[in-house]
Design a protein around this nucleic acid. Structure first.
Length: 421
RNA sequence: GGGAGCGUAGCUCAGCCUGGCAGAGCACCGCGCUGUGGACGCGGGGGUCGCGGGUUCAAGUCCCGUCGCUCCUCCCA
């Protein structure tokens, strides 16, 4: 019986992996430009980290998280997101003790047990940044600027994107707002879908996010978090809006944006593609001023965002038509005859040690076929046959121009790059 | 979790309605042409028709189940 991959887990094959590598390189270089440094937390954490950090009542934790006992019976989880892990590491290693802003970024796989579809796998990949230690709205603005910059850098135009922004207040404002929502929706309970009736008890904020048509009219008239902000939160949002204006970053204030993770406070935002269907959010994030304390660290505010690699790859492949791969090799070695074949290996090894990307046929192909492969994969063909062996020379052919020249073996191998313009 | 569509060669797909030899194009390999190319010509290898069961003399085709993919919903990145 053939063993196949697990549902929702897919292979990224070499052709696609090139695009991933390029994207990852762009992300790394850009976030490092903003002062972020990489952190690589483990993929496995105590399940408790996420139930406390992300929230027991969220779909992510109670429906979608991979949870399993280890041999000692501890409940472990595959990380469904990375912010909680980064904050755990921040606390565990005392990064706050440096008394400075900690700017951290990550790229890696996350796991959620969802129904797979295009742009949404059970093992998926996110990149993200977290800035811990400052309450300054300028930091929110910088993080949002970074998000925009990143999308532009990878080739998306501003017109193809929309930034949605909201403030959901701090822990002082939340109870009053939550109560307002609960009493508002309680009066309209029979208009709500069954999920929202459950949310009414667990987390009424989430109702605002519901897309069920039957809930829309009730949602339309619901109290808005913006009306329940304390003076500090209101000021924070106003300053942020002013800074976004100064930065020339357009946004839509969306009072119904709440997001599916409990740790957010104040600023929440999403950067969405206008060209994707139902799964249009390319990245999302916000402020989480209580999370460090909630996980046992000193009171420390934070702000960050996470973006999905799969979705980015999807949008980009619509924009950048599969660029015909230019030859990956510098030289393809073509031996003629048995003796030459034996000698070819050592010549290959020497070229590679000089930094030349070179390869050889191991499939026993005919001369003609080797030429055909060389033409496709390399810029030069290097012939080694009885004539060359007799004179201790090599024949180098430029496959683009068709010109070839024969060179003393030792001269070529001493500085192969000189002959490979 | 709910709804719909689709699974046939490495890839894109035809064949299914109306049961009767498993096909095309591309890719791959060989030969023409082991001392030089992606063109051309000729030839060739490749398939548990997703999997399991049922109906039938006969199933890729009809029926049931199942798994997977895609889309909507949901969730979010």
């Amino acid at each position: 019986m053939r063993v196949e991959s697990v549902r929702g887990m897919r292979d990224i094959l070499p052709e696609e992996a090139r695009l991933w590598q390029a994207l990852e390189a762009e992300i790394r270089s850009l976030v490092e430009l903003y002062g972020y440094r990489e952190i690589r937390p483990p993929l496995v954490e105590l399940a408790e980290l996420f139930s406390r950090g992300v929230g027991e009542a969220t779909d992510i934790v109670h429906k979608e998280m991979y949870v399993f006992p280890d041999k000692k019976g501890q409940m472990l989880a595959l990380r469904p997101e990375a912010t909680a892990s980064v904050v755990r590491a921040y606390i565990e290693h005392g990064l706050y003790a440096k008394g400075d802003l900690a700017k951290l970024y990550y790229i890696g796989p996350m796991f959620r047990y969802e129904k797979p579809q295009k742009g949404r796998q059970r093992q998926f990949h996110q990149y993200g940044v977290e800035a811990l230690g400052s309450l300054d709205p300028a930091l929110d603005a910088e993080v949002i600027d970074l998000a925009w910059h990143l999308m532009e850098r990878v080739g998306l135009s501003r017109e193809a994107l929309v930034l949605r922004l909201n403030s959901i207040g701090c822990r002082e404002d939340r109870p009053a707002y939550r109560e307002a929502l609960r009493s508002y929706f309680s009066a309209r309970k029979d208009e709500l879908c069954s999920d929202c009736q459950r949310r009414l008890e667990e987390n009424p904020l989430r109702i605002l996010d519901c897309k069920e048509p039957q809930c829309q009219s009730a949602i339309a008239g619901a109290p808005q978090s913006l009306d329940y902000l304390c003076e500090g939160c209101r000021k924070h949002l106003e300053e942020l809006r002013g800074m976004l204006g100064d930065l020339g970053l357009a946004y839509e204030l969306d009072p119904r944006l709440v997001r599916g993770i409990d740790y957010y406070t104040r600023t929440v935002f999403e950067l969405c593609s206008r060209e994707l269907g139902a799964q249009d959010a390319l990245l999302g994030g916000g402020r989480y001023d209580d999370l460090v304390e909630l996980l046992g660290g000193p009171p420390t505010p934070g702000v960050g965002f996470a973006g999905g690699m799969e979705r980015l790859v999807l949008v980009l492949s619509q924009h950048r038509p599969a660029n015909t791969a230019s030859p990956a090799l510098d030289v393809y070695v073509i031996p003629i005859g048995e003796e030459a074949r034996k000698r070819a290996l050592a010549i290959l090894a020497q070229m590679r040690r000089k930094g030349v990307a070179a390869d050889l046929d191991y499939m026993g192909r005919s001369l003609r076929k080797m030429m055909s492969v060389a033409a496709r994969q390399a810029r030069y063909a290097l012939f080694l046959g009885p004539d060359e062996l007799a004179q201790d020379r090599l024949t180098l052919k430029n496959l683009a121009s068709g010109e070839s020249r024969t060179l003393p073996r030792s001269e070529f191998l001493a500085h192969p790059q000189r002959f490979l313009s």
